[in-house]
Design a protein around this nucleic acid. Structure first.
Lengths: 191, 191
DNA sequence: TATATTAACTAATATTATTAGTTTGTGCAA
DNA sequence: TTGCACAAACTAATAATATTAGTTAATATA
């Protein structure tokens, strides 16, 4: 054990995630985080590399949590069912952890290899789900980008209040997934 | 004419848009904007209502510019062609004006009626494009949300460096639009 | 028991947004 | 031409932020 084992990086990042989900990603400042932890803000520098380092750690934590949610949702399922459940789990994660999800989608720099790896894991999971469709390598990757695009876009627009009309949002989500799956069935049949 | 007609709100917002596109939306601070305009930051308060007011004005400017781009892209076109061109124009706008696009998608508060109206105009344009599909009112609105979701998701992920793999991004975009249009053709045929 | 390690601290600095109050340039009317 | 009203831009000051430097003190271990 370290001397005075009060905080560690995990505790700091989890508190930051709590703060982000409660008050929004932009509200995660070193000042607010230090207050949340009952500590002075310079003390945080012992655990994270300033505000940029905190953001990077949150991004990584968010991606890994997202991946776990997706894996849990598709285990034991296959084909269209797995695809549908993965999309729903993606949105579910973004809804229950809005701040952490926002952190997960922050711009990433090329030197953040851990973050890139975590993102790749999500891509690989989706690729596995797509194997029944027997797509070419490129088409499978295009499809993964497609899934990520409409799932992220939906979450992002919903979160920022752009779906203001009086129309059930879960219905919209189901509609969108339907259109995608039907389009994919045609793509698969093309070969 | 006003006395000392150096700046006005339009000039301020346009400079902010320039700054956002060059250095990113987060880099638009009153300090950087004042420096860009050769003025002291308190002077900006004569034209915009602080940083929140500046952001709101940028959001509005972004949405209106986006709408113009979409209208220009679909004029004289119809059906599938119009749909495809609208999606491409959407992405094109986000690519050429990344900071302004980011501003356009900022969370909006219920009291920002002008911003909400601008967003509604985009929705209405898309609804018009969809009329040939003869959808029910609800399905048309679901479809608009779908289009906005995958277009925005694609732009957002591309922008934040999440499409890192060595795979042509325009091909992915075309693939995505194809899947959507094929799925919609089935939806339309269902009736 | 003494020491090395390191967590957390205080103090200080730079940058930011913001408010209050002042100066000053411009257009218009007497 | 002169003076006034208006408003744009200013300076000064305040509060909050991130960050760095250097200090204190708690703990594990030799």
């Amino acid at each position: 054990m370290s001397p005075r084992p009060g905080l560690d990086q995990t505790a700091v990042v989890q508190a930051a995630a709590r703060l982000a989900d409660r008050d929004g990603f932009h509200a995660v400042t070193l000042a607010s985080l230090a207050a949340e932890l009952g500590v002075r803000s310079p003390s945080l520098y012992n655990h994270i590399n300033g505000l940029p380092g905190l953001h990077a750690a949150l991004t990584l934590h968010g991606l890994r949590t997202l991946l776990q949610g997706l894996m849990k949702a598709v285990v034991g399922k296959s084909g269209e069912d797995a695809l549908r459940q993965a999309c729903l789990a993606y949105v579910e994660f973004a809804r229950t952890h809005p701040g952490l999800y926002e952190a997960a989608l922050q711009p990433i720099a090329p030197e953040q290899t851990e973050v890139i790896q975590a993102g790749d894991s999500v891509v690989e999971l989706l690729l596995q789900i797509l194997t029944p469709y027997k797509l070419t390598t490129d088409d499978a990757l295009h499809t993964v980008r497609c899934i990520r695009s409409f799932c992220h876009g939906f979450c992002s627009l919903e979160r920022s209040g752009q779906f203001a009309m009086n129309l059930n949002r879960d219905d919209s989500l189901a509609f969108m997934i339907d259109v995608f799956i039907q389009g994919m069935n045609l793509k698969a049949g093309e070969v």
